[in-house]
């Protein structure tokens, strides 16, 4: 796993848990009054933001295993400049394995971060879709009210005119259907596939149990360090898997909601066409009456 090629995500900011400078150690609440509504977080005021010093090679200097930049350069080039993998000592190769494992962990964490951002955006999109659906329904209700008022108006216009003039009758258009209220998709109602699996007890993490493995004591040799990194990668990949599953569910829900809204808009459009014809007819009648 850690022998994989470098991904473009490699240089993304890693979590600097063991970093010497802890920005969370500030004793004053600097951002108590500095809340700004227009941004999600204030610039440079989040005391939890990692401030990782990045060295010339693009790696954080807060690496837990204290590899020098010269070592890093050699690892980056996969020992091409120093005789290839075969001519390296066991110690060098062990350190190289640790370096690669760390790099992979950072890449996986970057993927997880991107997936989380996608999830957040998708959540906002779903809220907007819900809002849009409500607006369509409300607009359709207003169209139904207009229809009701127009019927009364047409009656009044029909009764107006000269004593011997023929009673005016509005053009016949089909009746307005009004808004169709869609319930949630019955198959997916009140709980998705995950929840159903949870109820059946098929999920990997039982209720109340956190997925992460217990923290081991500080690793002493390279193999242990690699194992620790692999553990971190497994946790991150497990989270990523869950996130991608959720994103799939979100995409399905978005699709079905957009389909539903398209249907609602078709109905709304038909009703508005009928209303337009009737309003035009009523206007013509009014002009004729005023012209007499």
């Amino acid at each position: 796993m850690f022998g994989s090629k470098k991904t473009p995500l490699r240089d993304a900011k890693p979590s600097s848990v063991g970093h010497a400078h802890n920005p969370f150690d500030s004793d004053e609440e600097t951002n108590d009054k500095k809340y700004n509504s227009s941004k999600k977080t204030l610039t440079n005021t989040n005391p939890f933001d990692d401030e990782v010093d990045v060295d010339a090679t693009g790696h954080s200097s807060s690496s837990s295993y204290g590899l020098s930049s010269s070592h890093r350069n050699r690892y980056k080039s996969d020992f091409r400049d120093s005789g290839g993998l075969e001519s390296q000592s066991v110690q060098e190769l062990e350190n190289y394995a640790v370096y690669k494992a760390e790099e992979t962990t950072n890449s996986v964490n970057s993927c997880l971060k991107i997936a989380e951002e996608m999830r957040e955006d998708a959540t906002k999109t779903l809220v907007m879709l819900h809002h849009q659906g409500e607006q369509i329904t409300r607009s359709h209700h207003v169209a139904a009210d207009i229809d009701h008022d127009l019927s009364r108006g047409e009656k009044l216009l029909g009764s107006l005119g000269g004593m011997f003039s023929k009673t005016w009758k509005p053009k016949k258009t089909g009746t307005i259907t009004g808004p169709v209220v869609f319930g949630d998709d019955p198959v997916r109602r009140k709980g998705n596939h995950l929840e159903q699996r949870e109820k059946l007890g098929l999920t990997s993490a039982p209720k109340g149990q956190s997925k992460s493995r217990p923290t081991l004591s500080e690793p002493s040799n390279a193999l242990e360090k690699v194992e620790v990194e692999k553990g971190k990668q497994d946790d991150a990949l497990s989270d990523l898997s869950d996130l991608l599953g959720e994103l799939k569910g979100m995409a399905i829900d978005m699709g079905s909601e957009i389909g539903r809204q398209n249907q609602a808009l078709d109905g709304f459009d038909n009703d508005m066409e009928k209303l337009t014809v009737r309003v035009n007819g009523a206007n013509q009648r009014s002009h004729r009456l005023l012209g007499k």
């Binding site: 969370f24 609440e29 999600k40 939890f48």
Partner: peptide
Amino acid sequence: FTRVVKEFNSITPLESWKSTLLLR
């Protein structure tokens, strides 16, 4: 506590008001 917050923040950045609560 600090480590847990920083780990979470590295994936999902916390809004400033949440940071304030956690600082409290």
